[in-house]
Design a binder for these strands. Structure first.
Lengths: 333, 333
DNA sequence: CTTAAGTACTGCAACGTTGTATAGTCCACA
DNA sequence: TGTGGACTATACAACGTTGCAGTACTTAAG
């Protein structure tokens, strides 16, 4: 029983369409009429019915963002930034959690149309390659580098280069027994593979032999456990590159628990620049991706695909975003 | 151009309504007809159009969750849990960030109808009291205690009791110079007021004089700054109760930076039990609210209001959720 | 053999909005 | 004084779905 155009029209003594024109800011409405309609709108508290609007236009004004998990500070930050960026276009963002489950990710790609989504920004974890290449009719922007050649746009930092920067920072400190934490076997773990590649390339350049610790996922507990294994199973490293900040915080926890000093005995660097790392003890050195720019570009790319302009149907594009090395206590005196 | 009932009907050689009946599981459809329709649905890849369905039924299957900020681990966790709980009812959750801005919160309460939301779960920060009491037609469940008497359901832990528990834990350790970090002046900062009340009551019982540090917001940086002020402006406390874990982590950072030991010189306890506190150094004692239960109850309450059953129109209710004290390194040897 | 109840299906109208087509009015310009 | 054009406003049809009313046929009861 909320009022519709019909009710406003009746009260203002005009046709339904004229009210619609006023609401949509159509130019050719006489000032007097417009005022009368506006008054009626105010009086009745009219609000456009989005369902009907969408039924007509095919657009819902809602985009979906799918991330592995919101609990992870990095994704929470990205989510917040994307909501902000979308707001500039007065889009609403529907945030979806995949928990990294392949099944859920497949459903997403195949058809989130169920909920009338105009577009999708997706940070895949379990899926890669051809599985992502499904044409669903809904434009999709992927966060992360393109490894196979699907139809979607991508926004990513140069993971390999960034992880090389992190590793080079460790070697430049004179450390020689360097370990990496965050290796994953799954072929779909593209990010982990790329960070490993950067790590290996720098070690090879420097003529060093690195140790590599596998993890199940990228949480603090995984980092803590992996660090414990590194300490138990061989000569302790004097530096560790963790593939994200959570792993690094977990690793630091283990090191301190065992009475080792950071960075004295072991230097630690992470990846993502989450807020936690700025207030941990010691504060955490890290690679900071330009997250606001990632968010902005992702939304912009989607906007282009959704626009009725000429750019709507171009070839998929891959946009690079900058990163920078942030040195804090965990790798300096 | 996605297929509609019309297309399926044509292919199966039945009426549109029959297809609708099959889709909705109406009983009186002959098995043979049902099979034929199913086949046509498969073949065409028919998916119901939610906009049209909603236009008819008035229900969108989407509920909104509004929190101050996703970056905050506690809210990120709650959000994840609510999404899970909503999934059981096959609802989609639209997550909204208010940034604690009164303007945005007012808009929410007044009418999120703009996006065709069936219900709203809302964790207010800037608003309190009468401002929340607006009847919008959309059922609303508030996270946090009810202080004024609005029309909305509430789910909350007993903040006063919980903060008394935290404070009592500190006094039971033999600490006497106890400070609180997290006081806020805004009358709408209900949570802060309640936690302060619990703190004061226990100190009064124990005949102690406590110090109280104000903060702008509840982030690490605020905790760090508040701790610095406490240390600069008087006799250092030997225990600090921070009104959330982020403040506590910030405070610990300041303490360690200044060469004080935690808990040796100063014991620190927080509130929320976020993951960070389980891996920080030292690990953080805290009050753990039963977050999964909060999420479940919030969704259940909304479901009741949305149901067409008799319970739909009852008086607003307030549900209490348990909390427990978690003792970790920051308050023990 | 009639009647009532049940089964299987159909057609129409409506949800609230907007695009297209249309029509009347007024003004300026030739 | 006609004529084209800009302005203002309206009517109608569609978007895809479902509730309601209704038709035709079948079965069971009286």
């Amino acid at each position: 029983m909320p009022p519709g155009l019909k009710d406003v029209a009746a009260r203002a003594g005009v046709s339904i369409k004229t009210v619609s024109n006023v609401v949509n800011g159509y130019v050719h409405v006489a000032p007097a009429t417009r005022a009368r309609v506006q008054a009626a709108i105010e009086a009745l508290g009219y609000v456009p019915n989005m369902a009907a609007r969408q039924l007509r236009s095919g657009r819902s004004g809602v985009i979906a963002l799918a991330v592995p998990e919101l609990q992870s500070p990095y994704f929470a930050e990205i989510a917040g930034l994307i909501v902000q960026a979308a707001e500039q276009r007065s889009w609403t963002v529907l945030i979806d959690q995949t928990d990294g489950q392949a099944e859920r990710e497949r459903n997403l790609v195949a058809g989130l149309r169920r909920h009338a989504i105009d577009g999708l920004i997706f940070s895949p974890l379990a899926l890669a390659g051809e599985e992502l290449a499904v044409e669903s009719g809904t434009p999709m922007v992927l966060l992360g580098e393109r490894v196979w050649h699907g139809p979607a746009d991508h926004v990513a930092i140069d993971n390999t280069a960034a992880s090389a920067d992190a590793t080079r920072h460790l070697t430049s400190l004179g450390r020689r027994r360097i370990a990496a934490i965050g290796v994953q076997d799954r072929p779909s773990a593209v990010t982990a593979h790329q960070r490993l590649a950067g790590f290996r390339s720098v070690l090879a350049e420097a003529g060093l032999q690195g140790r590599e610790a596998r993890v199940e996922s990228f949480h603090r507990a995984d980092g803590a456990a992996a660090m414990a294994r590194l300490l138990d199973e061989g000569e302790p490293p004097d530096a560790v590159f963790c593939f994200n900040d959570l792993l690094a915080l977990g690793a630091i926890r283990t090191l301190l628990e065992r009475g080792l000093s950071v960075p004295g005995d072991v230097a630690v660097i992470g990846f993502d620049d989450i807020e936690d790392g700025r207030f941990s003890t010691p504060t955490l050195s890290t690679i900071a991706p330009d997250a606001p720019r990632i968010a902005q570009l992702a939304v912009d790319l989607l906007a282009e695909r959704l626009g009725d302009g000429p750019a709507a149907g171009g070839a998929p594009r891959e946009l690079r975003v900058d990163h920078r090395l942030v040195v804090r206590e965990s790798t300096s005196a």
